[in-house]
């Protein structure tokens, strides 16, 4: 049997966060040199929401990231790049045929997938998490060449496996979502895009008048954390705390719930704007806050290990989280006041 073989010369680079990594790699493929933190910052990856009355995986819903595909969509929009995003494809076969056509034309294509049935993924990570992104860059017979930024090396997936992960069910189902860049003209000025990106992030973190989103949500969660052991018992409190830490540290966040990546973005932006003192200061505080997040994980993990007898006082953890929230607020207030 004759096997068709098309492999695009696409460089796989590992990244901290799946979507901004994919976005940055796609931009680099078309010759626009944008690092992962830069793509993350321009595309408003940073976000926080805490929804205690919605239970996901038997614990309150906590999210440190924006809705899926926000990073790619906003980054291309702010940078003025022509891109196509197809949100929903009803027929799975048609979705795969579209992917094949793209690959034949030499377009690396990003896709949203579910993690649970992703065969090359570490088994420990395989939960029903549908906001993962990967890029297909080649086809060889029945096999697709995949660049997944969580993995160290490029991977392969069969036709059936890829179809299955693209049509995973559950919350935020991918429904065959795919995206690619049509046209990227050289000589794009990224400064205006950075300003737009920062303003939008600041709005999302402190501007939205709803108490469960952004810094307000973080403070709400800190207050709730104190009550969990009394309200739910130690066992469950430890599981809920574990959920916060899992969301902050695992699932490809680059550590500390994307705070490190955002700090790196602020620093890069500061250097780009001619050593802008306020931006660099903000980056510094963000870095310190991220270190505090990591400390919080180290201490919290002890409670997760010894579930029925908490080693650390939940009141202390709550105060720590409150301190983190206040530090973050300082950063956003600082960014709000900057006049470019």
């Amino acid at each position: 049997m004759e096997t068709t073989k098309t492999i695009i010369n696409y460089t796989h680079r590992q990244a901290g966060h799946c979507e901004s990594g994919a976005t940055s790699n796609l931009f680099k493929f078309y010759g626009l040199d944008i690092s992962e933190p830069m793509a993350f910052g321009i595309g408003n990856g940073l976000y926080f929401s805490y929804i205690p009355f919605l239970k996901i995986m038997f614990a309150p819903m906590i999210s440190f990231r924006n809705l899926p595909n926000t990073v790619f969509r906003r980054a291309t929009q702010y940078l003025g790049i022509e891109a196509t995003v197809i949100k929903k494809i009803k027929d799975p076969k048609e979705a795969m045929a579209m992917l094949d056509r793209n690959l034949e034309q030499g377009i690396p294509t990003g896709m949203q997938v579910g993690v649970f049935q992703l065969t090359f993924f570490p088994p420990e990570y395989r939960q029903h998490y549908n906001m993962h992104n990967l890029v297909a860059f080649g086809k060889e017979g029945n096999l697709y060449h995949i660049s997944d930024t969580v993995m160290e090396f490029p991977q392969v997936l069969t036709y059936d496996d890829l179809l299955r992960v693209r049509y995973a069910g559950g919350a935020f189902a991918p429904q065959g979502k795919m995206y690619w860049i049509n046209n990227l003209k050289p000589g794009i000025d990224i400064k205006p895009a950075i300003i737009k990106g920062i303003k939008k992030t600041v709005y999302e973190m402190i501007g939205i008048p709803f108490p469960l989103i952004g810094v307000k949500g973080l403070k709400w969660m800190a207050r709730d954390l104190k009550k969990w052991p009394k309200k739910h018992g130690n066992e469950k409190a430890s599981f809920y705390l574990g959920q916060i830490l899992r969301m902050a540290e695992d699932f490809g966040t680059g550590g500390a719930g994307f705070r490190y990546i955002y700090g790196a973005f602020l620093k890069e932006a500061g250097e780009l704007f001619g050593n802008h003192t306020e931006l660099l200061e903000a980056a510094d505080i963000m870095g310190k806050t991220a270190n505090k997040w990591r400390e919080f994980t180290y201490i919290g993990a002890r409670n997760c290990k010894n579930r029925s007898k908490p080693e650390e006082d939940y009141g202390m953890l709550s105060d720590m989280l409150m301190g983190i929230a206040q530090n973050e607020e300082i950063v956003y207030r600082k960014l709000e006041k900057i006049k470019f």
Binding site: G242, D250, G263, G287, K288, T297, A301
Partner: peptide, 30 residues
């Protein structure tokens, strides 16, 4: 995996490493 870090002297750093022990504890928990 790729992890970011921050310290005063070097600024923001990127390094490849395995998940550290405390992260493995919280994965194990679920």
């Amino acid at each position: 995996e790729l992890f970011y870090g921050f310290d005063k002297e070097r600024g923001f750093t990127r390094e490849l490493s395995y998940q550290n022990q405390s992260n493995q504890v919280i994965i194990r928990q679920s």
